[in-house]
């Protein structure tokens, strides 16, 4: 846990247009090959935090670092291709009128090395069997859980060092959500760090290594995910009921 963070948001302030700030001094560190889970109420700024981390949204102040290097203000293309930060958006974000194969190919848009792309394609097909099974189907025709796996596969094509996952279990039935959580663990085990945002906080903390509770644009509590799960006050406030019930 003491290792140098791979991705670091340091005292980030950010917001949309002239509206009030959404993030008010957010600090989050993601060590290598670790699942860091960001939980917090709706509207707390979790999605906004991920957008800042992937370059979709420029912070007003604060720094973003990857491997200790300051990358503040860089756009999504460089964040992905140069710094290895991939982002899977909240909700459905496949390209619906493209085949699964084309979606996966789009994930490697910034990569010119054909052999590398072929290796990554084999890798994601093996990690997500659905991707291989539905290779020729239009992505928009897949179920929600299958689409999410296509999105995962697409994001892993560049072999990112960290993936940002925004509520990947949203809208999925419990069994499918379970599959998706398993796959998040497998991504981590394959060496990719994960910054995971979840409404389903309890399930997420169960697979995470580190938990952060975000409220009003700031991290209020941070610690080993197990400690957060066991903390009765937190359970009441953020995890929907007391941990003592378990």
């Amino acid at each position: 846990m003491a290792s140098e963070p791979l991705l670091e948001l340091d005292s980030v302030e950010a917001g949309y247009g002239r509206a009030a700030l959404v993030l008010r001094g957010l600090t989050v560190r993601v060590p290598p090959a670790t699942i860091v889970c960001l939980v917090g109420p709706n509207g707390a700024g979790k999605s906004t935090a991920l957008k800042v981390a992937s370059g979709l949204l420029k912070p007003r102040s604060g720094r973003i670092r990857v491997n200790g290097r300051d990358v503040t203000g860089e756009g999504p293309r460089r964040m992905l291709a140069t710094h290895g930060v991939a982002h899977v958006l909240q909700g459905h974000s496949v390209f619906p009128e493209m085949t699964v194969a084309e979606n996966v190919a789009a994930g490697a848009y910034t990569v010119r090395d054909k052999a590398f792309v072929a290796r990554r394609t084999d890798f994601v097909k093996e990690l997500f069997p659905v991707v291989a099974e539905r290779w020729k189907s239009l992505a928009g025709l897949l179920s929600g859980g299958q689409q999410k796996q296509v999105e995962f596969a697409r994001s892993l094509m560049v072999d990112p060092s960290v993936v940002l996952l925004d509520e990947p279990s949203m809208g999925l039935d419990p069994k499918t959500a379970g599959t998706v959580f398993d796959q998040v663990v497998r991504m981590r085990d394959a060496g990719t760090a994960v910054l995971l945002v979840e409404q389903n906080a309890r399930r997420a903390l169960e697979i995470a290594d580190i938990g952060c509770v975000l409220d009003l644009g700031k991290v209020h509590i941070e610690g080993p995910a197990g400690d957060l799960l066991a903390n009765p006050d937190l359970a009441d406030l953020y995890l929907g009921g007391s941990a003592r019930a378990y």
């Binding site: 992937s54 958006l89 390209f95 493209m98 084309e102």
Partner: peptide, 23 residues
């Protein structure tokens, strides 16, 4: 073509296209 892929991606989901590195 590669450009065609980028164009269709931009049409179908702009933000996801940006996150794939498409300008």
């Amino acid at each position: 073509s590669r450009f065609g892929l980028a164009l269709r991606a931009t049409i179908q989901h702009r933000e996801a296209a940006q996150l794939a590195g498409i300008d």
